[in-house]
Write a protein that binds this DNA or RNA. Structure first.
Lengths: 250, 250
DNA sequence: TACGGCGTTGCAAATATTGCAACATGATCG
DNA sequence: CGATCATGTTGCAATATTTGCAACGCCGTA
């Protein structure tokens, strides 16, 4: 592991919050001004950071370009997108596509519903293992060893009174999820938001993706969402088919 | 300048072309396998690269997240303003900066020329889709689906005898706009006012902004404005460059 | 004009990076 | 089925690289 590179990466994260002066960066990184300067210059030359009008360091444009490129390289996203788009349009709810990457579940696509609400998810961000519907449904379908690795990263931080705060509680949910074939988030991260998530199977029959339909519970409570389960399941199966899935039963 | 960070950054660029094995990365960077491995591990931990299904290194999802963030943080107005200011001063005409926001084009900056005339535009207001130069030029450079959404909001209200009052007529104009590289407003909103508008490209190569130079036709008719096209185009390219566009600078 | 904050550069010290060589793993092939 | 090759991983010593320092330049302000 390279300390210097780790510092540079941390600086990018620091600068991403808001533009920062050289001294702020130096202090954050715990290094001398001159060191911070040289790191920033290297990052700046590559376009990873830039100086804004005030001379403060901000996120660079190369990050935008790489972000787009990386987005394009997620193949599942391009296959699933049309299906999700239609789903979002038909029901007006926000739709997510989650992907298992190593030990974590990441949002790789998101289509905002009508009257979109501020919600923590963002394409490229990691989903909360113990609360997000896509995370739970994907995890539920992994083999024990993989489950262990994923759950090892869960924080079990409490957000609301329905949040799973223990491994046992989450395990129970995962068993239920697998048994019934879908996951639910009953306000476990934001009390006023709930969602239903379904597994997506790939050519090997493995679940590396999941989709979720999210709504304000005031607009569409779980009972309302469950009423449309057949349509949601059909969308998930369509995506599975595009990923080469041949089966009909898991 | 930090050699280690520069190497890490170069690796990201290398991996962005296509997923690469450890040995490929090591060879490209001109370092030993073990060194490349440690750099990659550091990048991987930060989510800047990831291992794909074959174990090759590919672009990581954190890059997507940062890219989205950086995109949201771009304040085109502050970057473009100095360029527009100079343009307005040099020619004495009124200059606009338009931005595509959702399905509509909005004026986000305006510098009044000498002898400023009352004109309907105002910062923050929506530009008329079927008459405003900035609106036409931005629309002309969108993909078909986006065009459709934008044009769906057009009123086609007639203001003068040159106003486009049908979709077909406007479509024709848009094709011409894209073909020649700029848009013209030949008194389509106010009979005595005309303008020339040019596209601004961002880091992704997309047109989300446009600039326009507007004048009384009695002061500077289209033929007069066209005579200065090279200078207008240069200003547009300067702004594009500030937005991270790499279009014609290798 | 003096002052304080901020960014920049040359240089020597020291620390983090590097290459090496040995080991581990897994796929391929006779 | 065993051997071989390609690929990835780790401990360690050498040294190239990074680091902090101190001095300098710049600019706005008191």
């Amino acid at each position: 592991m390279s300390q210097t590179v780790a510092r540079a990466i941390d600086i990018i994260g620091f600068v991403s919050q808001q533009p920062r002066s050289l001294n702020e960066v130096a202090e954050r990184a715990g290094v001398h001004k001159s060191t911070a300067l040289r790191l920033l210059q290297t990052l700046e030359e590559a376009g990873f950071v830039r100086k804004d009008a005030r001379g403060h360091y901000a996120m660079g444009f190369q990050l935008i370009a790489y972000g787009q490129l990386a987005l394009d390289q997620v193949e599942a996203r391009s296959l699933a997108h049309p299906v999700l788009q239609e789903l979002a349009e038909r029901h007006g709810h926000t739709v997510h596509l989650g992907e298992l990457v190593g030990d974590r579940i990441v949002y790789v696509d998101k289509i905002d519903g009508r009257g979109s609400v501020a919600m923590g998810s963002r394409i490229g961000l990691q989903a909360q293992t113990h609360t997000a519907g896509v995370a739970k449904v994907i995890t539920a379908y992994q083999d024990p060893a993989t489950q262990e690795r994923i759950l090892g990263k869960a924080t079990f931080e409490r957000y609301t009174d329905t949040t799973h705060t223990s491994r046992a509680s989450l395990d129970q949910d995962l068993r239920q999820t697998r048994a019934r074939g879908w996951a639910e988030d009953d306000g476990e991260h934001e009390g006023y938001i709930n969602c239903i998530a379904l597994p997506v199977f790939d050519a090997r029959g493995k679940v590396t993706h999941g989709i979720s339909v999210t709504a304000l519970s005031a607009v569409a409570p779980l009972t309302e969402l469950r009423a449309h389960l057949d349509e949601f399941r059909k969308a998930a199966q369509q995506i599975s088919a595009k990923l080469g899935w041949k089966g009909n039963t898991p």
